[in-house]
Simulated assay, not measured.
Amino acid sequence: MSGVFVASLGISAVALGQSDEVTEQIELGLELYQEQEYGAAITELEFAISDIRELMAGRIGETFPEPPEGWSAAEVASSGGGGAAAMFGGGGSMLEREYQQEGGEGRLTAKLMIDNPMIQAMSAMFNNPALIAAQPNMERIRIGRDSALLKWDPERGNAEVSFLMDGRILVQVDGQRLESSDPAVALLKAWDLDALREQAAR
């Protein structure tokens, strides 16, 4: 199963076919459970869960921001190994989308991770002003009524904007060869965070 998702995926025939396959896996898992073939039942249900996570990742991929004026964007893809399903809870994987400045050298990478142990390691930073102040070139900025962290290296033109949503969803934009941090901040603010929260709901 591909780890690459078109950002404008929608509900396609492929997705519907995958949903039918999930239904079959769940029904077979139930039959095996009723026949007390527990190991086989677990296998089928685990396959079903993995496919549901793939469908969920595709929907979440649709929330990534469109390229701003003067920029182009690639498809949303999974990175880090383990496939898109690994972004939920472990494996070190994430969804990301690359953006390229047209007629310039700037690059942006929008990244997303959900329910991953790495998020817990970073959450202390967001809630500790002393830790933020101790980091060079880092400051707190506003995303609506919420806070995000911006790290800006003007000498290299590198920016990193991080936003932790609901304590379990990490949204980041990394920028390279930028004249200012504005494109990275603007891209994160353009993310459809309400749709993301809805699609990632547990």
Rank of each mutant, 00 (worst) to 15 (best):
M1Y: 07
V4T: 11
V6H: 11
L9F: 04
S12C: 07
D20A: 11
T23F: 10
T23L: 13
I26A: 10
Q34W: 05
Q36W: 07
Q36I: 08
Y38H: 09
G39S: 13
A41Q: 01
T43R: 13
A48K: 13
M56P: 02
E62Y: 08
E62R: 04
E66Q: 14
P67H: 04
P68R: 12
S72F: 01
A74V: 01
A77I: 13
S78R: 04
G81K: 09
G82R: 04
A85Y: 07
F88H: 05
G91F: 06
G92I: 07
M94Y: 15
Q100K: 01
E105Q: 14
G106C: 01
L108T: 03
T109K: 09
L112Q: 09
D115Q: 02
D115G: 05
P117I: 11
M125R: 10
N127E: 15
A134L: 06
Q135N: 11
N137W: 07
N137Q: 15
D153L: 04
N158T: 15
L164T: 06
D166P: 02
V171T: 03
V173S: 03
D174L: 05
G175F: 01
Q176M: 06
R177K: 13
V185M: 15
V185D: 09
L188P: 07
W191M: 05
D194A: 14
A195R: 14
